[in-house]
Nucleic acid binder design. Structure first.
Length: 410
DNA sequence: AAGAATAATGACCCTCGAGG
DNA sequence: CCTCGAGGGTCATTATTCTT
């Protein structure tokens, strides 16, 4: 069997290869390009099945056997307070939604020094464990979190950590693995073990049958149990960020609000009406990307989804760029916000059109541009929109701004 | 009122491509 | 061919809100 390892950073790919059974396999390493929006020169050279995973957001590593992806890995060293822990969540979703197991490496805590205060540990938001568990329940594909090694457990007092310069986080000393986690750490050993198990399952049963067996693997079960325990031990509950910024109200309020866009020739379609209640994610900020795309994806899994596609939702999922006032008398809502503007969304969409070369004459297309042109012929602007536009419009049934709205009819 | 937790935003890095 | 600005993407710190 031939392995291919797609990477964003090569040292991290070597780190994973050298610490797992991959080192004994026949493999090639290839650089992964994230999107047509940020790498116009090379993105079109990605194989079609890799493009599908990249559609929402790009992970750090994808491993495949004979052109079938078998797992992806995402690494972060960021302090995971509030909604920051969910910043990379759309990547995990993109992987799992394509039936590819996802590994997430994230620090249990990181040292942050704020103005006029001594250094302290910023701890991971445990709700991420619940979100990952819900993803596993819905897709029957592993989505496992391993702690990026740190001094947190050995030095609960942040000022005593010997690694202040790295926020208390422990990197591998091998220079060939620069920027990778400490490979000898127990968490990483567990992760390599799980990767080896997944490789073995796919080798023995093939990719189709193998996928069905993954959640029943004892190593995967054990990790899932650990993650559920961590959620409980760290005091996780369902009113933590980002769920603390959501409200659930009858869909009729949304329909009444959107009725301002209806007229004699148009009425809102059946999709929104098909669900009795609607979840609103209130973002009272200027329109932008991170950390909101990941948080929106997480809310979908935590509250709305009951099946594999966004059509199988218990509740509508609506992203509102504003606070929301509920008007019970008129069964509608008001958006008092002033920062979010529908034109900011529309301008980001328009900007992506500048990346498209579909309006060119053949004579004006350079030879090296032809494969990119041909990709765009097939996919339009699918891959040339910026990430947050792709993610928002994939997950949200409607996006509301104080001065405009977008919604699906079906 | 202080401290903790969360939400928002400022700032940085990387890549590409236009133009000198 | 080199420089530099724009755009895309990422991360840390500040601002705000919540809790005790």
């Amino acid at each position: 069997m031939n392995f291919r390892i797609w990477y964003s950073t090569e040292p991290f790919a070597d780190f994973v290869i050298d610490n797992t059974e991959l080192r004994n396999k026949t493999f090639v390493k290839k650089k992964m390009y994230e999107s047509d929006a940020n790498n116009a020169k090379n993105f079109h050279t990605m194989p079609d099945h890799i493009k599908k995973i990249l559609y929402l957001d790009a992970p750090d590593l994808i491993v495949e056997i004979d052109h079938e992806p078998i797992f992806s890995v995402e690494v972060s060293t960021e302090a995971g307070t509030g909604h920051n822990a969910f910043q990379r969540f759309a990547r995990l979703a993109a992987s799992v939604e394509n039936n590819v197991p996802a590994f997430y490496i994230y620090p249990e805590a990181a040292i942050i020094t704020r103005q006029d205060t001594p250094p302290k540990w910023d701890k991971i938001n445990p709700l991420v464990f619940k979100a990952l568990d819900d993803v596993m329940s819905i897709y029957n594909i592993p989505a496992l979190l391993y702690y990026y090694p740190s001094d947190y457990r050995t030095h609960p007092d942040a000022s005593t950590s010997a690694n202040q310069l790295t926020k208390g986080i422990l990197h591998d000393p091998n220079r060939n693995y620069s920027g990778s986690p400490l490979g000898t750490d127990a968490e990483m050993a567990d992760m390599f073990n799980a990767m080896n198990e997944i490789i073995a399952v796919f080798e023995r049963h093939g990719t189709v049958k193998g996928r069905e067996k993954l959640l029943g693997n004892r190593t995967v079960i054990a990790r899932r149990t650990f993650m559920n325990q961590e959620f409980a031990n760290k005091g996780g509950h369902l009113n933590m960020s980002p769920l603390s910024a959501t409200i659930k109200i009858p869909t009729q309020y949304l329909l009444n609000y959107l009725s301002q866009f209806e007229n004699a020739n148009y009425s809102i379609g059946e999709l929104l009406r098909s669900r009795d209640e609607t979840i609103f994610y209130k973002v009272n900020a200027a329109f932008r990307g991170d950390p909101y795309p990941g948080a929106l994806a997480a809310i979908d899994y935590l509250l709305c989804r009951e099946g594999k596609s966004f059509e199988e939702r218990r509740f509508n999922l609506v992203l509102a760029w504003s606070d929301i006032n509920i008007d019970d008398a008129n069964q509608t809502i008001e958006l008092p916000g002033t920062k979010g503007k529908v034109d900011d969304f529309v301008r980001a969409v328009q900007a992506s059109e500048n990346k498209n070369i579909l309006s060119k004459d053949y004579a004006d297309i350079a030879n090296h541009e032809i494969p990119r042109y041909y990709m765009q012929v097939r996919y339009g602007s699918t891959y040339s929109k910026v990430k947050h536009i792709r993610v928002f419009s994939y997950f949200a049934d409607a996006i509301l701004f104080p001065d405009g709205a977008l919604w699906r009819d079906a």
